[in-house]
């Protein structure tokens, strides 16, 4: 469980996050949705400490991350897996080396053990027999999967995904979403996913948080979202023709 308590973040004179409080639950896929530029990425980066927050506190299972020293944070980070918007695979390393990297850095496993774990993770995301290829030699969807495999290599307690299915076709996007959900439930991880894809919301939104202009505007489950009478939220959800029609049908 991750608790975000009253955090704020500014860049120069622009206030990007304003007094945001959220509880991300364990074993669930917690989705952060919102328009482009609403502050989703900044929120995610603030939670993991890639941005220093100006006010508030972040707790990882009751451990106050905000007050930790660099050393203590490093230890928590070994419990964190993160999938970046652009995959962020190391492009000078092969698929196998990418997934094995955290194992090389933080475990004392033998090479055989590491290879076994690497292949297990790659199999879990259904990327097999691609070990010796470089990231530039596989498709975008496959890169995302490898990024997920790398993120779960150390058995994380917390998984963060920034727009894991942006730039993918709808079918592949759903496969990635489902994979994230399965992994979350299977290993009882606290998962936080940034998205502006309504398909993902309906597919895997155990808990949905709507961010607008740097503030938490709404939260609830995917079932509640369609019944909400929050105007701002509805204008976001029903921005697409498809969902507007669907909305009419529902009402």
């Amino acid at each position: 469980m991750i608790e975000v308590k009253n955090i704020s973040k500014s860049f120069r004179d622009q206030k990007v996050l304003k007094d945001v409080s959220i509880t991300f639950e364990k074993g669930k896929t917690n989705l952060i949705i919102g328009r482009s530029g609403s502050g989703k990425t900044v929120l995610l980066k603030s939670i993991v400490g890639l941005h220093e927050i100006d006010e508030g506190a972040i707790y990882y299972d009751n451990r106050n991350f905000t007050q930790m020293s660099i050393k203590e944070r490093k230890l928590i980070r070994q419990e964190i897996g993160m999938v970046f918007q652009g995959s962020a695979l190391f492009d000078s390393a092969t698929i196998e080396e990418n997934v094995m990297f955290p194992l090389n850095m933080f475990t004392k496993m033998s090479f055989e053990e590491k290879l076994e774990r690497t292949n297990f993770c790659l199999k879990r995301v259904e990327v097999e027999n691609k070990n010796t290829l470089f990231p530039s030699e596989i498709s975008g969807g496959m890169q995302k999967r490898v990024a997920i495999a790398r993120a779960i290599a150390l058995n994380p307690k917390y998984l963060f995904c920034d727009e894991p299915n942006s730039g993918l076709d709808p079918k592949t996007a759903i496969v990635i979403d489902k994979l994230i959900r399965e992994i979350t439930v299977e290993y009882n991880i606290t998962t936080v996913v940034n998205t502006h894809d309504m398909n993902s919301v309906m597919e895997i939104g155990d808990k949905v948080i709507y961010i607008n202009q740097g503030q938490k505007w709404w939260e609830g489950s995917k079932e509640q979202i369609l019944e909400s009478d929050n105007e701002e939220l509805n204008s976001f959800i029903f921005a697409s023709e498809f969902f507007r029609k669907l909305g009419h049908k529902v009402s």
Binding site: L50, I76, R77, I80
Partner: peptide, 17 residues
């Protein structure tokens, strides 16, 4: 620079490196 803008540096930091 490329590693920085493609978030590979962030990826390292997140792992605790």
């Amino acid at each position: 620079g490329t590693m920085k803008v493609t978030q590979q540096v962030d990826a390292l930091e997140i792992m605790g490196v």
